[in-house]
Structures are given as C-alpha cells and as structure tokens.
Nucleic acid binder design. Sequence first.
DNA 1: TGATGCATGTAATCCGTTACATGATTCA
DNA 2: TGAATCATGTAACGGATTACATGCATCA
Lengths: 178, 178
Amino acid sequence: MNVRELCLGYLSLREATGYEIKKDFEEGMFCHFMEASYGSIYPALSQLALEGLVTVREEEQSGKPDKKVYSITDVGVAALKKSLNVLPAQDKFKSEFLFIMLLQNHITVQQRITAMEKQMADLKADLQSIEECRQQGPCDEASDFVLGYGNAVLTAGVTFLEDKLSKLQAITAKQAAE
Amino acid sequence: MNVRELCLGYLSLREATGYEIKKDFEEGMFCHFMEASYGSIYPALSQLALEGLVTVREEEQSGKPDKKVYSITDVGVAALKKSLNVLPAQDKFKSEFLFIMLLQNHITVQQRITAMEKQMADLKADLQSIEECRQQGPCDEASDFVLGYGNAVLTAGVTFLEDKLSKLQAITAKQAAE
DNA sequence: TGATGCATGTAATCCGTTACATGATTCA
DNA sequence: TGAATCATGTAACGGATTACATGCATCA
C-alpha cells in the first residue's frame, strides 16, 4: 500500500485537491491509521492523472490560490477494485512510547509519568477527532466501522493507561507524604 | 527513533547478537510495536561499535557459525538515557485493513468477511505471542506494562471485530436461507 | 507586521527493505 | 535430498520525508 493507492482510494469517496487529501490524513477520517506528506501526494496525483486513473479540473478562486480538483475515472475505479482484492498486509504499529516504557529502568519515575501523560493526551486527541468526524460526516456503514474500530482500540489504551497512571501517582503521593 | 537507537535500547536489557535482536523483533517482546530487518540491524551494530557505544565479542560455536555478541558500554547507556529523555513521538498506526473497510462499497460481502477474518487471525496471533512472552520471560514491571498494553489494545480490536463479524455472518446466513 | 491558512510543487536526502551471497548442520 | 535454523553481511533500489520555493489573504 503506497501513497498512490491511498490517493486513488480517497478519490473514490469524493473528489478532492491534494491539499484536502493531506488535511484528511492529518485531521479527518484517515488520520488515525494512515499518513502521507505533500511531497508524496502531489507527485502521486500527477502520476495517476498521466495514467488516466483520475482527471484534473483547475478551479480559480477569488482571494485564494487556484486549485486542482482530482476525480477518479472508471479506469481508476477498476484499478482500485483490483488492488482491494489483495488481502491486506498486517497492521503496522510503531510505538516509541512502549519502547521507553520497556526501558523504564533507565529513567526517573517523574519522566515515566510525563511520558504516560503525553501518551494519554495523544490518545485522547485522536478520540476527540474521531468524535468530530462522527458529528460532521455522513454516517454510512463504512465510516462507522472505521471510526468504531479506532474508538475501541484507543479507548482500550486510555483505560489501561488511566489505571497504571493512577496507581503510580498514588505511590508517588504517598512517598511525598512520608 | 531509528534502528540504531532501537538496537542500543535492546542491548541495554541484555547482550545479544544481531540475529537474536531480529528474532525478538519478529516473535519476542518487541514484535507488536517495532520492527527492523537484518539489512538495517547489522550496519547499525557495526556503527555503534565504531563509536564505542557497544563492544563486540566474537564467539566460536561447534556446529554453528561463529557469532558476534554485542554488549552496551557505559558511554552507550549514557547516550541511551539522553535519547530517552526526549518525549516519544506519537504512535504510528498503519492499517490497510481499515483502508479496505472504508472502501467496502467497492468489494463484495464475501471479500469483506474474508478481510475481517484475516484481521482477526492476525490479532489473535499477536495475542498468542504476547501470551508466550508472559509465560517464558522474566516478569518484571517494564515488560509487564508493555505486554499488558499490547494485550489491552489487541483484545479491544478482537472484541470489536467479533461483534461485527457475527452480525455480518448472521445476515448472510439469513439471506442464504431465503 | 508577523503568523496562519490556502494552495502547489520540486530536489535533496535519508532510512530502510529486498535481494543476493555464503556456509555448516540438523531434521524429515 | 531438500528444507529449516543459525549466522553475518553488502549493494541496489525504492519510497517517503524534509526542506525549500512561491504567493496571496486574513486576522491579531
């Protein structure tokens, strides 16, 4: 799964500019399980247009720069369906947080707490953006599933962390009192 | 966080060969939140040795090829502590599975079920390997935390999927009966 | 006046994977 | 005899990020 397929898949849901796609990978529906930068999105869109999988329409805007709106073609939809037919690769989860927690013997209790609080904040921010997607977006079955999955997994993380964090804080509070 | 730091962190827990490190990234403690290939591990270890953050000891073995056992040095520990001091980057989660589910309108119900079953199998395999780590490994606080976190998150995924999958299967069974 | 948002794009660079190369031993 | 495990390493290649470049409008 590369940025090219990602863009093609995105455009099968709605037409969009490169800028909008990036935005959605940052804040929208896709933000908790995919990412891509402008440096990969713009070339991918040009390439897709060259191959006829998408079309471009240039729109002038008053007060804003011109934009290029990309739409998927029938050929594009066919290509997408073909690539969706392949079984998905296993999820990839990379966590510096867990790495730090595994090496917690090398850091102070306070550093540990700080790392956990940062992790909590990150998870909650993700949950928040899922909530916003739910309120705004069109609640079809597909996005419901994806947001629900994200919600379930993130909530589990928060619950786990809350438990551990409160225990840690209780211990440090007790030690401070002594 | 690059492979270099990853290896240094690993070696702060126990001395090991490049081969063993790779193994642990595949099956062991690290497997559900980190990965690296030989092509990046071996050069990283050589580099660390050059810089004096680790030392190498060559061991001959009967019946097996010689191996190079790497151990962290005091300088290495200091460098590691310094890098652990930096707040961890946000977790990265990439899921082709969720991508497919978001585009489920383009595929058949059967394909959807197949993808979900594959996802279930992947999650359960990960849970299984966590369980094995728990039985074998030394149950210190750090590994307990990491395995517990993984367990919580993966279990949430399984629970969510089981629910959705059983509903889907019920519907298709009903349709088949009609 | 300086930051932020909208909007597109390229080039350098990095980091890592894949594939290749080697070789002995053990197990089926 | 062929596959799998142990064990190390390099070179080619790919894919993506980062930084850079540009420019107007709005808001504080």
